[in-house]
């Protein structure tokens, strides 16, 4: 039930009513298209954004800037100071 990989937003739909027409995103999860609910995220994602998904619901939008920092810190920790792997 835990999908540990991020998925990419293709398009978003719905959202006219929180309960009767909840917002959803069509996402690409390793090549498979799925619909995920967006009730739990604090903003409507754009196509191309990445989501963390759990049991059919997006639980957060992945933060590209933090991902870059994550990787930079790891590279630094690993003693490979210099150009971080390209992530942008």
């Amino acid at each position: 039930m835990c999908l540990a990989i991020p998925v990419k937003v293709i398009e978003t739909r719905g959202g006219t009513d929180a309960l009767l027409d909840p917002p959803v995103a069509i996402v690409d999860a390793e090549g498979i298209r799925q619909e995920v609910r967006l009730d739990l995220v604090d903003r409507m994602p754009e196509p191309g954004d990445w989501l963390i998904v759990h049991a059919g619901f997006a639980i957060n939008c992945l933060d590209p800037e933090e991902a870059r920092k994550n990787l930079e810190l790891m590279n630094e920790m690993a003693g490979q100071v210099g150009k971080a792997a390209d992530i942008s």
């Binding site: 739990l40 995220v41 604090d42 957060n60 992945l62 933060d63 933090e66 991902a67 920092k69």
Partner: peptide, 13 residues
């Protein structure tokens, strides 16, 4: 895991 976890978590959820 800063790319997914905010210090305050997800208050909406």
């Amino acid at each position: 895991y800063g790319r997914a976890v905010n210090p305050g978590g997800n208050p909406r959820a």
